[in-house]
Measured scan of single mutants.
Amino acid sequence: MASQGTKRSYEQMETDGERQNATEIRASVGKMIDGIGRFYIQMCTELKLSDYEGRLIQNSLTIERMVLSAFDERRNKYLEEHPSAGKDPKKTGGPIYKRVDRKWMRELVLYDKEEIRRIWRQANNGDDATAGLTHMMIWHSNLNDTTYQRTRALVRTGMDPRMCSLMQGSTLPRRSGAAGAAVKGVGTMVMELIRMIKRGINDRNFWRGENGRKTRSAYERMCNILKGKFQTAAQRAMMDQVRESRNPGNAEIEDLIFLARSALILRGSVAHKSCLPACVYGPAVASGYDFEKEGYSLVGIDPFKLLQNSQVYSLIRPNENPAHKSQLVWMACNSAAFEDLRVLSFIRGTKVSPRGKLSTRGVQIASNENMDAMESSTLELRSRYWAIRTRSGGNTNQQRASAGQISVQPAFSVQRNLPFDKPTIMAAFTGNTEGRTSDMRAEIIRMMEGAKPEEMSFQGRGVFELSDERAANPIVPSFDMSNEGSYFFGDNAEEYDN
């Protein structure tokens, strides 16, 4: 993207840094990872977990959730003011799984939030270390993106479920800051804005008074975040219109849905970061690795190297396929839920299948599930090659597409044709070009129609051997075009429920 120079890199967003050079960025990201790792080690000690239990991804998720809940100030305040039966607002906890007599047992633990905050700050040299908290939120978000298709949420806001490739980060909490905003897809931002506008339509006082002023500035800020994701002048001009509207209503909703559809071809720039579970960072720190000293990046080879040398386990339900569970977590670790499966298959070195073909449910185990038949197995999170994460949407291309997802959002900077089903997408653009945004709409449609099938995206960008740390010898991959490109292809993934 041309304006790259004016933006802070995501590592800076990730670490609240002012302008830093590459070495400083690597050190501050490393410091953040160190903090998460030290916190995780301490929690495993508190909970008396064995090494194996500490490497269980379900335990990692519970521990991450506990610290996120302990620092969720708004919710904590709300819980104190609106006490609900049987919930102690000062405590947080969740299921911890232990191996007892050759069987997995679930144990519900409860801790004072104050105590968890103390352990977290102690692991982070006394700081609140917001960057580390956001990092864990993005890992949870990436896992949700890989596990669930947001059909219901899309339909509720009037969008087409086939636009799911635009929904990265749709389950990120509001408090995820600049680093969170960077990884949100165009569809996620559109959905947040539509929800806001709908509230304004239904509630006369939404934009009024002292609160209304705050609401208005939040609305304009979200519009600017979305505008910054678009790469064409016409899309940005249309966002200006939406932002400046005196009284946002149905016309703005129409414009936003139009823009979301246009992003299936004229893709937005959305950041991709490899955020790993805390149970990967903990053992690495415990083994003596100093992330701050060595430096770390979320968008280069580092996460690949770390996963190459990590042992992570997962509980497996009786009829689940461990290899499929591994694929789910591998995609989440690489922030690749909406990437082209052919690119992923090449990088991973084994075939990556669409969601609907995987015999696996989510990673988390519900409290009512029976533990008797639970097994555990090693997650295979290694890769054959590594590639640089991208934040450009890439230019655009036609490809055989599917009944489910009709476009992709690249996660890796790797040369390819970008699949999208042009006739299906263009069919949504018939007729409606009147109104105050008509010239911009016409211009956007013209650009979409001009998108050429034979153009290559990320020209000359390749993948790298894991021994090639400096990215000196790019390998331009070859793809098996007979395979499906979309992950949520004609899909039956479970729906995400809060």
Rank of each mutant, 00 (worst) to 15 (best):
N483I: 12
M1I: 07
Q459R: 15
V414G: 02
N250I: 08
A2L: 00
N397V: 10
L328G: 04
R55A: 06
D88I: 10
A286Q: 14
Y10T: 09
A403D: 05
V463T: 10
T188D: 09
A237T: 11
D421H: 15
A284V: 07
P161V: 07
G180Y: 05
I265Y: 00
E494F: 01
T92N: 15
T232L: 10
M163A: 05
R175I: 02
D340K: 02
S84M: 12
Q311S: 14
T157R: 04
L154F: 01
N334P: 06
Q168M: 12
G200R: 02
L166T: 06
M331K: 03
K87L: 01
S383I: 00
D240V: 09
E375D: 15
T430L: 01
R243V: 08
F464T: 08
G185T: 05
E434D: 01
D468Q: 03
T390F: 05
S60R: 10
A373H: 08
L108N: 04
M426Q: 12
P318L: 12
I347V: 09
G185H: 11
F429N: 00
N321S: 08
A286P: 04
V183D: 07
G212C: 09
I57K: 07
V476M: 08
S60P: 02
T45K: 07
S478G: 12
G93L: 06
S310Y: 02
D128W: 01
T188P: 05
L110S: 03
I138T: 05
I444G: 06
E254P: 06
G268K: 01
E320L: 04
G180N: 03
M163N: 00
K184D: 00
Q4A: 06
K305E: 04
V109G: 07
L381D: 08
E114D: 14
E220A: 09
N125V: 11
E469R: 06
E465Q: 01
T232G: 03
D127L: 15
F488W: 03
Q20I: 01
L466S: 01
N211G: 12
E443L: 02
D160Q: 10
D112Y: 13
N202E: 02
L143I: 15
Y40L: 04
C44Q: 06
S176V: 07
V414L: 14
I445N: 03
S359W: 09
T6K: 00
P95F: 02
S359V: 15
R38C: 09
I33R: 00
K198L: 11
G5P: 13
R243S: 04
M196E: 05
D101V: 10
